[in-house]
């Protein structure tokens, strides 16, 4: 049975009530925002509730909102966004939770609800430094052994801080501060909506 996005929203609203921080549909995708203290409980509910039954955690990732455009009122810096899929009802849901503390982002782990959260959470910890409370094995996943920092944070430079080379004298591979300069060929630019139209020329 296919669940339409309207009935999905209605079902979530009916059962979660005021625990929903925001629930909206855009481009045919339903996004649910919850508070970090309700996060684990709501995840379990979304997984097991008969009317919803999101059996699969398709994706989970961290997002650093620190340099997000001016239009958005500045809120918390780190968010964890997951994409759920219900095979029984053939529908998807995006769940977002903002971390309460920007300096020590902490979110409960979903590994007990969806085992597939394991590596996704390790990745988000590695790249963004988001700590998942209750994860049994929160090690770095993608970066090098002994890597320092969280590379996908917006304040981490694209070039990184260290580079690796073979040192002839020491006869081993060494790390050293980078010798290349960061450059931006195409600048990042946000245009207003009427840019390039006749309305913008007036």
């Amino acid at each position: 049975m296919t669940l339409t996005s309207e009935s999905l929203q209605a079902a979530i609203r009916a059962s979660l009530g005021d625990r929903v921080v925001a629930l909206c549909e855009r481009l045919g995708e339903v996004t649910l925002e919850v508070r970090v203290e309700d996060y684990a409980k709501i995840a379990g509910f979304l997984r097991h509730d008969g009317a919803l039954r999101f059996e699969q955690l398709i994706d989970l990732c961290g997002v650093d909102y620190s340099t997000y455009g001016d239009t958005r009122p500045v809120r918390k810096r780190f968010a964890v966004t997951s994409h759920l899929l219900s095979i029984a009802h053939n529908c998807r849901l995006r769940v977002r939770v903002f971390c309460a503390d920007d300096d020590f982002p902490l979110v409960p782990s979903l590994i007990g609800v969806w085992p597939s959260a394991d590596w996704f959470e390790r990745e988000a910890f590695d790249l963004f430094g988001i700590v998942f409370e209750g994860h049994p094995d929160l090690r770095r996943l993608l970066t090098d052994y002994g890597f320092v920092g969280h590379p996908f944070r917006k304040d981490f430079p694209l070039t990184g801080y260290v580079e690796m080379r073979y040192d002839v004298d020491q006869k081993r591979v060494i790390y050293q501060p980078i010798t290349i300069e960061s450059r931006e060929i195409v600048p990042r630019v946000v245009r207003d909506e009427s840019y390039g139209t006749t309305a913008g020329r007036k």
């Binding site: 994706d59 650093d64 997000y68 455009g69 239009t71 958005r72 994409h83 195409v186 990042r188 946000v190």
Partner: peptide, 16 residues
């Protein structure tokens, strides 16, 4: 899957 967040710029804000 591609999860794309755009803030209206000429580059993605976040691509997962």
């Amino acid at each position: 899957g591609i999860y794309l967040i755009s803030d209206g710029a000429n580059k993605p804000y976040r691509l997962k």
